[in-house]
Amino acid sequence: MARGNFHKMHGLGNDFIIIDTRTSPVEMTTARARALADRKTGIGCDQLILLEPSDMATVRMRIFNQDGSEVESCGNATRCVVSLLGQDATIETDGGKIDGAYHEDRITLQMPPPRFDWQDIPLAFAMDSAAMPMAWDELANPMAVNVGNPHAVFFVDDKDAIDLLHLGPQIEHDAAFPERVNVNVASVRDGALFLRVWERGVGETRACGTGACATAVAAIRQGKVASPVTVNQAGGSLTIGWEPGGLIEMTGGATYVFMGEVDWDDFG
């Protein structure tokens, strides 16, 4: 039997299976990631995280969504990894290197600078990424931004009035987004942001770290809020700071839930 250990953690309710393959080697496939993430027949998570050796950072992080697809970046998971390591650390991801400062009750990340060019989102063809000339029912003219992964940000009067379960998958899979997209719907109130996120490959989530970054960047760029800004989600709040041309700073908590042991062969 191929047994190994895993850690279960969450950042504001966005939950992860974290496997340190440096000590518990496991071959990960799309099917195995999907089986482990299943909340009825597996361990259950929004994302599965593999930690691997890195030549350029403390550790390399690979990220698999609930549907088994591998993606570039995850802010909440990165905070959890820094917390798990218990020290300041640099995390290598496919979305860029992230520096993490460790404190017992909070983690601060220095995320890569946001990108706005249509090729960098990426979009399927050239268009104004600051106000895309597209609409899906009441959601129109989003700002597209890449913060290590692609996001479309909509500002609305009442985020809770939006049928995100209906519109989220439509926008995620729209042909305008060749690598799919995370969908952010936000309201501005008293200088703070209130956010819901439809995460590609997962669905609506209690919190999305990169979504908070993308939404804060869009709001700051449009003059809707000042930096740093509090971004409130169903699972809790993050503080996001950004100045044009600079890195994105994210501060928030990370929660350790439990450690378990599993036979990987039971999951394909």
Rank of each mutant, 00 (worst) to 15 (best):
A2E: 12
F6M: 03
F6V: 00
K8L: 13
K8D: 07
H10I: 04
G11M: 07
G13W: 15
F16V: 01
F16D: 02
I18D: 10
D20E: 13
T21M: 13
T21D: 04
R22M: 01
P25D: 00
E27D: 11
T29A: 03
T30L: 11
A31N: 06
R32S: 13
R32T: 06
A33G: 00
A35C: 02
L36H: 14
A37W: 09
R39Q: 10
L48K: 02
I49Q: 14
L51A: 02
E52R: 15
P53H: 01
S54A: 01
D55K: 00
M56E: 08
T58R: 01
M61F: 13
F64C: 00
F64Q: 00
N65W: 06
N65V: 05
D67A: 13
G68R: 10
E72L: 10
N76Q: 01
A77Q: 01
T78L: 12
C80L: 04
V81H: 08
S83R: 07
S83D: 08
G86M: 04
Q87D: 07
T90Y: 05
T93D: 05
D94R: 03
D94S: 02
G95T: 02
K97C: 09
D99E: 09
E104H: 12
E104F: 14
R106Y: 15
I107T: 01
I107M: 02
L109M: 07
Q110A: 14
M111W: 00
F116A: 00
D117I: 00
W118M: 00
D120Y: 04
A124E: 05
A124W: 09
S129F: 14
W136P: 03
D137I: 07
L139W: 15
A140S: 15
P142F: 13
P142K: 15
V147M: 03
N149D: 08
N149R: 12
V153K: 12
V153Q: 11
F155T: 01
D157C: 08
D160C: 10
I162W: 12
L165C: 04
L165V: 02
H166Q: 08
L167M: 15
P169C: 04
E172T: 13
F177T: 02
P178H: 10
N182W: 05
N184E: 10
V185D: 06
S187C: 14
S187R: 04
V188M: 06
V188C: 09
R189L: 07
R196C: 06
E199H: 05
R200W: 10
G201I: 10
G201Y: 12
R206S: 05
C208F: 13
T210C: 11
A212L: 01
C213I: 01
C213E: 03
A214F: 11
A214V: 06
T215Y: 11
R221P: 00
R221I: 09
R221D: 08
G223R: 02
G223L: 04
V225K: 07
P228F: 03
V231H: 05
V231P: 03
Q233T: 15
G235P: 15
S237Y: 08
T239G: 09
T239H: 10
I240T: 06
G241F: 09
P244Q: 05
G245L: 07
G246L: 09
L247C: 09
E249C: 12
E249H: 14
M250R: 11
G252Y: 04
A254V: 06
F258H: 10
M259A: 14
G260M: 03
F267P: 04
G268L: 01
